[in-house]
Design a binder for these strands. Sequence first.
DNA 1: TATTGTTATACTCTATAACTATA
DNA 2: TATAGTTATAGAGTATAACAATA
Lengths: 155, 155
Amino acid sequence: MSGPQLLDALLAITAVLQADQERELERRGLTVPRTHLLWVLHHGGPATQSALAEAIGVTPRYVTTLVDALESTGLARRTSHPTDRRALLVELTPRGASAMTAMASERVALGDALIEGLDPHAVAAAIQVIDHARERLERLVAEHERAQEERAESS
Amino acid sequence: MSGPQLLDALLAITAVLQADQERELERRGLTVPRTHLLWVLHHGGPATQSALAEAIGVTPRYVTTLVDALESTGLARRTSHPTDRRALLVELTPRGASAMTAMASERVALGDALIEGLDPHAVAAAIQVIDHARERLERLVAEHERAQEERAESS
DNA sequence: TATTGTTATACTCTATAACTATA
DNA sequence: TATAGTTATAGAGTATAACAATA
């Protein structure tokens, strides 16, 4: 009975979060996948384009496009790989690094703002419910995929 | 302290939900905005393209593209408006209607699956926390927008 | 032979501007 | 004059396939 309600509540806040995020990115001249790539560089340091493709879950070809865009706006740059002459290392420029630092602290501020006026215990309990639901969902998805693979094999 | 953790938990489950949804849509040969349009037709009945543009928050031009795609896959169709010869009414085909019915019940099943093993009271409390956070967020966004408009006016 | 990145191509999402038919 | 929808065009997101240089 309350499961669908939880789903509705999650989808509703998700929609607002995404709209807000997109507005913030637009203000900085960024897009979602470009920001995702910068985020990976911010946390993991310089990386090859293949590694970035793997990390953000897109094709290597699309990483080329993303890095082109980030280079042209001065947020990242390509440097040569020290040992593998096929590969390129992508790294943040100082401007890219400071943009990521600013976004990280804005995100913490947003998180704090979200729970203003709420009992910390209630928030902690809600986090547990959400995490539990996510784990259930991940297991369901994994089962679906396994079932589909079996169907594909048998056909 | 726990605000950013709540945000993280929400973003994490959101990512899984979206990935799951996209896989489901792909299985049916649908896309997110096309499904959104079908959903509006399912709940509100036949509508003009302008009304649909308003309802799903895209330009009228893009509704043309979406309806073209839905017509070519046999899920929706255009009919003439009874009184306004400029306008077209878009409606679900029987196939479109049954696809929407199936998706609605799948969504309820997903909601139920999410909370398996959880105390209903805990779920209800979590829903309250999420709704509260959404309302806070909506207010913040509205304030931001007002502030930006003022800045735009004064410049 | 396998891997890194790029050129070529294509489809979906989405917008603005200009236009046609009708109100 | 205003509105409903379409043609024209463009940029972003994203994929596959073919290819070059290097390992």
